[in-house]
Write a protein that binds this DNA or RNA. Structure first.
Lengths: 118, 118
DNA sequence: TACCTTTGCTTACCAAAAGTGAGCAGCTAC
DNA sequence: GTAGCTGCTCACTTTTGGTAAGCAAAGGTA
């Protein structure tokens, strides 16, 4: 039972736009979740986010870094190691991710349930 | 203090993807909010969602209709009148919109606050 | 040593989507 | 009549996305 139903105020549109400008892609939230679940290397993320390509991942990681949601660290050494990690600020997106996750779960149930329709 | 911080479970990724498949564009949530705030005619929505074009709006409205989030109604009569309205199901997206709105609000503050940086 | 694999990307190339401007049918206003 | 609004669509350009390949540096394997 959402307490806000229909109660969108005038600041909703601009704030939403601000948020969407950072987060609206198909991949960004997925990447953040992958990072949060322990996948910190490029190839590791690539494998854990099904369907993403190297090119897009590289670009998205740059975007996320620019928005200060993640941090890229290069560990020099005989094998140069690059790791990505979510910054604390990215945790503020948890409510968004949570809400979206819940909705996705529910939506799938709806779609599956009404299986008799085209 | 988000209670879910880092606590993403294994169903997060697929559920998130399901949700993003419906809602990930730059415009869909904005359109839903515009509809929910009383803009129900095409041109009205177009004007209230800054930056959107007729073409994209038409396409997004079709998508939203297909996903059963909105309903298109044509009232025949001397002036044919087309109205769009959010279906009850779209209200289930309120938590998502709310979370995103909050985040956007906060993010703008952060960006503005750190104004001395590039 | 040669050969294959992994990593973290980048580069061409092509397809899909978004943005731009014009326009159109049907109506109203003047 | 002509100008305007509405709800779109069309043709065109630009931007974004996706695919496959490749590359330098290192590691394994024999």
């Amino acid at each position: 039972m959402p307490p806000t139903s229909m109660g969108h105020c005038l600041t909703t549109l601009p704030s939403l736009r601000d948020a969407l400008d950072v987060v609206s892609g198909k991949w960004k939230l997925l990447i953040l979740v992958a990072l949060a679940t322990g996948h910190q290397r490029f190839r590791d993320i690539e494998r854990s986010v099904p369907g993403i390509s190297s090119k897009v991942l590289a670009k998205e990681l740059k975007d996320l870094e620019q928005h200060q949601l993640i941090q890229r660290t290069v560990q020099e050494g005989p094998p140069v190691l690059v790791t990505y990690e979510v910054l604390p600020y990215a945790d503020t997106l948890d409510p968004v991710i949570f809400a979206l996750r819940e909705w996705g779960l529910n939506h799938r149930r709806k779609i599956m349930g009404a299986g008799s329709e085209a």
